[in-house]
Amino acid sequence: MPTTAAYIGAAIAEISGCFAFWAWLRLDKPVWWVLPGMASLALFAFLLTLVDSPAAGRAFAAYGGVYIASSLAWLRLIEGVKPDRWDLIGAAVCLIGAAIIIAAPRPPN
């Protein structure tokens, strides 16, 4: 699985899982919302293992930028709140940082 697909899938799974808990605790949804949330969080963890990186910490760090941008997409598409320019600028900075982490030339380990 390509890194981009793994990161996007992981972001959707993580945000969905966290939102399930948010919905239960903050939006008065029934407690059973936690069950698919936990399954989604397990899928998130699995998908991050598919990233082609010799170091977990580097894969997780680069994922952070994708997570931030995906969270803003969730904000718009699911919650119906339009991100402001500062949200978008911040996400762009994070994605640039993620790209640097992923694509930087490194000597072989």
Rank of each mutant, 00 (worst) to 15 (best):
M1G: 13
P2F: 11
T4D: 07
Y7M: 08
Y7P: 06
I8E: 03
A10G: 06
I12S: 06
E14P: 08
I15E: 09
I15D: 10
S16H: 03
G17D: 01
G17V: 01
C18G: 13
F19W: 15
F19M: 00
A20Q: 13
A20F: 12
F21E: 01
W22A: 10
A23G: 12
A23M: 12
W24E: 07
L25H: 03
L25I: 03
D28I: 02
K29D: 05
K29H: 11
K29G: 06
K29Q: 14
P30H: 10
P30M: 08
W32T: 00
V34W: 01
V34M: 08
L35K: 02
P36G: 09
P36W: 03
G37S: 13
G37F: 04
G37V: 11
S40W: 15
S40L: 15
L41V: 15
L41W: 00
L41G: 08
A42G: 11
A42F: 14
L43A: 15
F44H: 00
A45I: 05
F46A: 02
L47Q: 05
L48C: 03
T49P: 06
T49V: 07
L50K: 10
L50P: 03
V51G: 08
V51T: 09
D52Y: 06
S53H: 00
S53E: 15
A55N: 14
A55P: 02
A56E: 14
R58M: 05
R58H: 05
R58T: 14
G64E: 06
G64S: 11
G64M: 10
G64H: 07
G65R: 02
V66C: 07
Y67I: 12
I68N: 10
S71L: 00
S71K: 09
L72P: 04
L72E: 08
W74E: 14
W74Y: 14
L75M: 15
R76M: 08
R76I: 03
R76E: 13
L77Y: 15
I78S: 09
E79Y: 06
E79T: 03
P83D: 09
D84L: 10
R85M: 06
W86A: 09
L88A: 11
L88H: 11
L88W: 14
I89E: 01
I89L: 06
A91T: 15
A91M: 11
A92P: 11
V93H: 07
L95S: 08
L95W: 01
L95E: 02
I96K: 06
I96D: 10
G97I: 04
A98D: 14
A99C: 11
I101W: 01
I101R: 04
I101N: 05
I102C: 00
A104Q: 12
P105G: 03
P105I: 02
P105Q: 00
P107E: 14
P107W: 09
P107F: 04
P108H: 12
N109I: 09
